[in-house]
């Protein structure tokens, strides 16, 4: 595709979206609706070719798909894959009001699958491993038995920070007295975490903005 044409389209769309900084306007609305249409179709097309064709159609109709799925040549059909095909089609019944209740069966598969996958995985990686990683010595000594102040302080911050943060999330008891103070410290720890996330988000967005400004610069450079 012509590079100049790409630069012009890129610049026009960028300016249309940035025009929202002034106020909502028809150019922004046009770009916004274009984005919705293109991104939905893009995700559908990628999902179709990257997942449905090799994992479903390639298994059910290997002979038919041999030209587009490399591993399908000479393979016999796996009819068990009719099950996800039927459930997938049932999901689409949601588009027809009369048959929409059938989509619950497919939704039940998705919800049950998500619950079944997530329960052991979260239990393992986000609970047991995190608790295990917090079990660290509060007093850190070097090889000759001297106290390492910096490392000890950091370890205490980590352990107390996790405990205070968890107390803040513990809603079964009213946060009063000692618990109230600990919960308040938990909020401060969480604020530091949110601040760090906020800082990174700002950096990422500014980096994106810089990229857009560079694109506009390249477009202006192609004109003058």
């Amino acid at each position: 595709m012509d590079v100049t044409l790409m630069l012009w389209i890129d610049a026009a769309l960028t300016l249309m979206i940035l025009s929202f900084l002034y106020r909502d306007n028809p150019f922004y609305k046009f770009a916004e609706h274009l984005f919705v249409g293109v991104s939905a179709a893009y995700l559908m097309a990628v999902g179709f070719w990257d997942h449905l064709v090799p994992n479903l159609l390639g298994k059910l109709f290997p002979a038919l798909m041999s030209g587009v799925v490399p591993g399908a040549v000479g393979r016999s059909p796996d009819y068990y894959y009719i099950i996800p095909a039927v459930f997938g089609l049932l999901l689409l019944t949601r588009l027809v009001d009369r048959w929409a209740w059938l989509s619950r069966w497919a939704l039940a598969f998705i919800v049950g699958g998500a619950a079944g996958f997530n329960l052991p995985r979260f239990l393992d990686s986000d609970f047991i491993i995190q608790v295990q990683s917090t079990m660290i010595p509060l007093v850190v000594l070097d090889a000759s038995g001297n106290l390492i102040w910096g490392a000890s302080f950091s370890h205490i911050v980590l352990v107390l920070g996790v405990i205070c943060g968890l107390v803040y999330f513990f809603f079964s008891v009213e946060h009063k007295g000692v618990l109230g103070h600990v919960s308040r410290a938990g909020i401060w720890v969480l604020m530091v975490t949110f601040g760090a996330a906020f800082g990174y988000t700002v950096m990422a967005r500014i980096s994106l903005l810089t990229g857009r400004m560079e694109a506009l610069g390249a477009w202006l450079g192609s004109i003058f």
């Binding site: 999902g47 179709f48 997942h51 449905l52 994992n55 479903l56 894959y81 099950i83 996800p84 095909a85 459930f87 997938g88 089609l89 999901l91 689409l92 497919a106 598969f109 998705i110 699958g113 998500a114 996958f117």
Partner: peptide
Amino acid sequence: YFAIITVF
């Protein structure tokens, strides 16, 4: 199956 149905 789960991965396929979620693509739908």
